[in-house]
Simulated scan of single mutants.
Amino acid sequence: MKYTQLPNTQIEVSKICLGTMTFGRQNTETEGHAQIDYALDQGINFIDTAEMYPVPAHEPTYGHTEIIIGNWLKKTGKRSEIVLASKIAGANRGLAFIREDLGFNAQTIRESLDKSLSRLQTDYIDLYQLHWPERKVNFFGQRAFKAEDDAWEDNIQSVLEALSGLIREGKIRTIGLSNETPWGVMRFLEESKKHDLPKITTIQNPYSLVNRTFEMTLHEIAYREKVGLLAYSPLAFGLLSGKYNVETQDPNARLNLFPNFARYNSQSTREASKMYQQIASDHGLSVTQMALAFVQQQSFVTSTIIGATSMAQLEENIGSQNMELSDSIVREIEKVQNRFPDPAP
């Protein structure tokens, strides 16, 4: 396993991060614990979760993913071996069952963090992230910013001050953003510089063969400001595994269970995935491992978040860690990207 550091910290993380959003809905606690055990055996030390998990967010299962991880931590006593990341849910996402006020302020951040700590059965979270902007931006499937009905008032300084206090208390080690826009990232960086407040270390945004918008929108910021990408959905909800390109499909596959995830269900996305599968086949590769290797070899990717519903999937995903794509394969990938530029925004 390869390792790196979360930017601007001494926190060492594996280049592959175990995503857990299926724990508690598609995966049982026993299955989740088996995945964590196997990941650790393969050298993974980085686990990502969120207060709203599992997904799709659902009141009866709210918080179950963190509970499953917390039970594993208690059972094994391996908290010191894990770099643990979690997230506070943002506003505008229909999650009133999580808390009455979904905005970010000192009270709501502390309340959500303390509940996560309790479920995770730990005293601290290594990387605490703001899961979505409070602003009405960056919805799945919406490419453009829309200004109408935007009643948000800039509170980024006070949010950073609240997080700073929790860092001083030892409840958080470092902070990050998720599903953020370039403007939002720069505002957080600006306020941290201006007021000597904690700097974000990472951005957790989607990045895959069918969604490379990070390259055009956030790559320069990440490079110049030394912020790392935690790439999620590197397989586009399994679309880039090739399992949806067969006549007989598994009814329990994620896009079949949850067809409302239209981001990865468009015709152009499916056509692009078939072309990537053909490239992999022509070179004797697994399309899953080719797609993951492409993400992992990008210089701006700090860690690639993988998730699986079966041990076979997890083994294949982790097996991508030592694969290097040749220049000829990358050129073929670029041809598909030019034909279907980012079909899953």
Rank of each mutant, 00 (worst) to 15 (best):
P56T: 01
D123H: 14
K243W: 04
A280F: 01
L218S: 03
L189Y: 05
S112I: 08
L166H: 00
N71A: 05
H219M: 13
I203G: 00
V246D: 05
V137P: 00
Y276G: 04
I69G: 07
A291I: 12
L102K: 09
L189K: 03
K146F: 13
L197I: 10
D114L: 11
L102M: 15
P343N: 05
A89H: 03
S118E: 05
I221L: 14
T201C: 09
F46D: 04
D149Y: 11
R168L: 09
I47R: 01
M311Y: 10
I88F: 10
G307R: 06
S118Y: 13
A344Y: 04
N322H: 06
S326H: 06
R79F: 15
M216C: 07
E153W: 07
I109N: 03
W72A: 06
D123T: 04
T304F: 02
S208N: 08
V301M: 13
F300E: 10
M290K: 10
G307M: 12
A291N: 11
L6I: 15
N205R: 12
T174S: 12
W183N: 02
S164F: 01
S158V: 05
Y276H: 02
F258P: 05
S112A: 15
V246Q: 14
K194Q: 15
A85I: 09
Y53R: 04
F140D: 15
V287E: 15
W132A: 12
K274E: 09
I203M: 12
W72L: 10
A231R: 01
I175N: 00
T181N: 14
P345A: 02
K2A: 07
Q337W: 15
S268E: 11
D48Q: 14
K335D: 14
Q289D: 07
G184E: 08
E316V: 10
F261I: 06
N45M: 09
N71L: 04
R99G: 07
L285A: 14
P251H: 06
R99T: 02
N211A: 09
Q42D: 02
G284K: 01
N179L: 01
F145Q: 01
K78T: 07
V295Q: 11
E12H: 01
